[in-house]
């Protein structure tokens, strides 16, 4: 490691606040960017599941597996 102690890593000669702020502000949108489509996909998936169960129509012989 380049830094001698955790405190030095945190402080980075007074620039630490900028560096860590930049990384934090980058991390937040990235997490949102990844999480949103996953959440949306799961919702759609559940919707389709519920819909096909409600209508009772079984498509293409996957009934045995879905009954499990």
């Amino acid at each position: 490691m380049y830094f001698e102690s955790l405190a030095a890593l945190w402080d980075m000669d007074g620039h630490g606040i900028y560096v860590w702020l930049a990384y934090l502000l980058t991390m937040c949108p990235i997490i949102v960017m990844v999480w949103l489509p996953i959440k949306r996909f799961r919702q759609h998936w559940r919707w389709i599941e519920a819909e096909s169960r409600r209508s009772g129509i079984d498509v293409g012989g996957a009934a045995g597996e879905s009954a499990r």
Binding site: I38, I48, S52, V59, A62
Partner: peptide, 19 residues
């Protein structure tokens, strides 16, 4: 996510969901 929603009535997707 978009595909799952646009083709929610398609049989191939229902097969996948039920599978």
């Amino acid at each position: 996510a978009e595909l799952a929603w646009n083709h929610r009535d398609a049989s191939w997707l229902k097969q996948l969901v039920q599978g």
